[in-house]
Design a protein around this nucleic acid. Structure first.
Lengths: 349, 349
DNA sequence: ATGAAAGCGCTAACAT
DNA sequence: ATGTTAGCGCTTTCAT
């Protein structure tokens, strides 16, 4: 295993410049620039000659030079709060990033990923304000933290997930329709014959926690059913188990459960089983997120699928449109999808 | 929900330039540049005055301008083959990326993520060769594809995972020690009393597939045990199930199984159970990867943990050292760790 | 120790 | 339709 040897490169073949292309094609640099940027006013003959020279020299425009004069970096920053990065193994988040990257790979933009920790928050701000990116995407997980709002004055920003206090923010965001998704899951429970439906809600200071409870309540109200069987968890399996315990300890009959995410549903499963109750016979269960906590559970969990890839794609698209000055809605809602599995099979089936 | 409004910014506050700082501090631009870059020859008094001006004006150096003259972009490209991106939900991959990002966030480098599809491979090459990055990291999953080797002449590259034909490549890479990990898992099976141990190997044209089989054979040979109970899968659960079926159909006794990854182990589980055999009583099982396929299996799967975060970190570190011209080993091996769970509990325990 | 000046590679008026 | 020219903001000799 040898040592050494390093950052040479880039100098072996001193990269061809626009000027060299101009010389080779026998035209001015301005003309080459026009050809490269597909400007309207170039005669076909010359354009062809220039393109030939470009090909022959293997010319690639220097981005730094271009950025310097055009004031455009063609860079989009993806800001990942460190708390979210810790949950990196969360397939939801990874898929959102993939969606962003996929969309951008068809544009001239490049994706810059930043991990923003408390410590380095100043560094992140400086990076963003230092003209290093044309726009930023902020993905936090459940927090609804729109603390980069102020930066939006200098740089277009698009968030994944709505802000906590929507009325106080003018921020652009793309969000999953948590209310509709939760309502759909609840309605499904009702449609399969359940009447005494409880919910394990998420933290009410996190938008998804709040919205999913709202969706549950709405569906219950629509069916003229009571919706006071509510306990709260923090989206972890353990908290789901405890909430289920509290729910069962109330002594009221429960034949259906909507958990605000699959993890909590998984936690609830263990308690339900431990009390000698059967799923779905005694209690039908529906979750939210559609991840492996639900798909590998026994019985498999009915849940709400989030369009994570599309969410990422949409975030990138909204941001690019803002950067390019095209009109975009300030809020974009992504539809969810009900995934019916064994945990909500009707009793008579 | 309002419409419009867009890419303004950046002009509201015309970013302060080095020149403005110079004026404010009453010195020349050269001096400001020296202070910013911590050059040796600056008097404390002046340095202080300059720093004050920088703070007051909230000055941030313009990267494009800096890159243009210094020929350094401070950008590191992370190339993700699209085939890998599809497996994005794979926690292994996501965590590697996180490791990279985490390491870089303590440096002056920035992470640029590129999805390299077949279609856009030319675009990727141009990007890399166009001086848009100071170095590149290539993470493919299992493929051992080092097809960017040629670019290494112009740009330092570091791979995650060894090349398929190591002898033919001079590439820098960081890899998990698959041989040692597989050997450790197998040795553990042996240590817990198993003697007729089979393996479900991965594709032999993928380095991890090949290396894990080698590790298995080595451990068996060290214990003077036969190692001809080998069937192959393609790392998917289904292929694991089929391989297990073939193994069992051989009619030879099997009391232990090493699967080259957790997915295939999960597939094997179903066949073992379906044949009325018990885990670990009849057959003890060990996997590799340490992901949820194993941790959520029943009984929980003994497996080999890969230091994914550290792998990413190490890749970034090796690349940065190359870029900075510091010595680095061409190959870096990351140690694995045995995670003992219920699937290998000794019979007498 | 500090300043003056040149120039990195490109785009965008402006002129022709 | 094409060329000329003047910078973009910074680093870096070279003087002083």
């Amino acid at each position: 295993m040898s040592e050494m040897s390093s950052g040479r490169g880039r100098d072996a073949h001193p990269a061809p410049t626009l000027e060299m292309v101009a010389a080779a094609a026998g035209v001015s640099r301005a003309t080459v620039s026009r050809v490269v940027n597909a400007a309207p006013n170039v005669s076909d003959a010359i354009a062809e000659a220039v393109n030939e020279a470009i090909l022959k020299l293997n010319y690639v425009p220097n981005r730094a030079a271009r950025s310097l004069v055009s004031r455009r970096t063609q860079v989009i920053a993806l800001v990942v709060p460190e708390t979210t990065a810790k949950l990196f193994s969360d397939p939801f988040f990874a898929t959102v990033v993939q969606g962003v990257a996929l969309y951008l790979s068809d544009t001239d933009f490049t994706l810059n990923m930043l991990i923003a920790s408390e410590m380095r928050s100043e560094k992140t701000r400086r990076y963003l304000l230092g003209g290093n990116a044309d726009g930023a995407l902020v993905v936090s997980h459940h927090e609804g933290d729109h603390s980069y709002d102020r930066l939006d004055l200098s740089l277009p920003i698009v968030y994944g997930g709505r802000p906590l206090l929507e009325s106080e923010s003018e921020s652009y965001f793309v969000d999953v329709d948590n209310v509709a998704g939760a309502a759909e899951a609840t309605a499904h429970l009702i449609a399969t014959g359940r009447r005494s439906i409880a919910t394990i809600a998420g933290p009410q200071d996190m938008p998804p926690g709040f919205d999913r409870l709202r969706g549950f309540r709405r569906a219950m109200a629509d069916a003229r059913l009571r919706s006071d069987l509510v306990e709260y968890g923090d989206f972890t399996p353990d908290s789901g188990a405890e909430a289920m315990r509290r729910l069962l300890d109330r002594g009221e009959p429960i034949d259906g459960l909507f958990a605000a995410n699959d993890q909590m549903a998984a936690g609830a499963y263990s308690v339900i089983l431990e009390r000698g109750l059967r799923i779905p016979h005694d209690i039908a269960v529906a979750g939210f997120d559609n991840n492996y906590f639900g798909s590998t559970a026994v019985p498999a969990l009915t849940t709400i699928d989030q369009p994570s890839l599309e969410l990422g794609r949409a975030m990138a698209e909204v941001l690019v449109r803002r950067i390019e000055g095209k009109p975009v809605d300030r809020v974009t809602m992504m539809p969810t999808r009900l995934i019916v599995r064994a945990s909500t099979t009707p009793r008579d089936a």
